[in-house]
Simulated assay, not measured.
Amino acid sequence: MSWVSDGGHRLAPDAAPPWLKPLVENAKDVKRAYRRRVPADVLAMVSAANAKAVMTGGGRDAAVLVLFSGPWDSQSGGLPDDADLLVTVRASTLRHHAGQAAFPGGAADPGDDGPVHTALREANEETGLDATRLQPLITLERMFIPPSGFHVVPVLAFSTDPGPVAVVDEAETAIVARVPVRAFVNPKNRMMVYRSDRTRRFAGPAFLLNQMLVWGFTGQVISAMLDVAGWAEPWNTDDIRELEDAMSLVGHDGDCAD
């Protein structure tokens, strides 16, 4: 087994189950798939903001945990029916990104020893996740999020049994859910979403589930991973909705069974 060190935390890409290997082995393509759905003018704006942040020393380092759970073996050889992905919904009272679905994670603390440490620490603080029950596999390429100014590193991990997870602090987190990956794959749960203060050219992939609307950075990353892993099914990219209209459907539509 090959090991790559990340600030004292060991990454083991070879520890991925067979059904997850297509994503792990082609992880370099996730950012490319992510950027493919971003309009050229928006991508240019993001690239310029990233370059400015790098030159001025602005922006903060952050990391999120992308935790897949499920059996080691798959009868079909592909995505198991009971594979799931850990997702949270931020509290509606928060100043930034209130009510938004996200991977557990956040800004790096001075004492953190790399992005894996950040992602695991934040996941424990938000969901009570026991980091000893999972295996970090790889880190995806760092991505810049202009609205928040964060340079985010997604940390891909796997567990056959992550143990109990739940909301730890209701002031920060409203929902913690292990969402079936097939709920994201289901074309009936997919749409494009844009914010009313922007234009339809800013629309990005979103997932309408029974407890949440997954959109923005998280929706983009999940959509890109489905494409790269070969799990995505054809869906209606012409179904474009304003964010508030899409949010109003939460709890009334979608096929996810958390």
Rank of each mutant, 00 (worst) to 15 (best):
D84C: 09
R32A: 14
K28E: 15
P115C: 09
L85F: 00
R37I: 14
Q100N: 05
K21I: 08
S196M: 03
T160W: 08
G149N: 04
S2C: 09
D29H: 10
R198P: 00
G149F: 03
D113C: 14
S148A: 15
L43G: 11
G128M: 11
G111M: 10
V179T: 15
D73C: 04
D84P: 00
D227R: 09
A51P: 01
L43M: 07
L208Q: 05
C256N: 12
R95F: 12
R10G: 14
L20D: 01
P71C: 08
T160P: 03
A16S: 09
S76F: 05
L11D: 07
F217E: 12
A98I: 07
A101T: 03
N210K: 14
T160K: 13
A12C: 14
T132G: 06
G7L: 05
L140C: 05
P22M: 03
L20H: 00
S92L: 09
E242D: 07
L137C: 04
F68L: 11
D41S: 13
H117P: 02
Q220D: 14
M143S: 14
R37G: 11
M225K: 05
A83M: 07
V116P: 09
T199Y: 00
F150N: 14
E242P: 00
G105P: 01
W3H: 14
F158E: 02
R35D: 15
H97P: 01
M191Q: 05
R200I: 13
S2A: 12
L86K: 01
N26F: 01
A16F: 02
V165E: 09
R60D: 12
I240N: 10
S5E: 15
E125K: 10
A171R: 11
P17F: 05
D255N: 13
R182N: 13
L140D: 09
L20Y: 06
L65P: 09
K31M: 07
L86H: 02
A98C: 00
D197Q: 06
L208S: 03
A107P: 07
A91G: 06
L249R: 11
V153H: 08
C256H: 10
L249E: 08
T118R: 01
M143D: 15
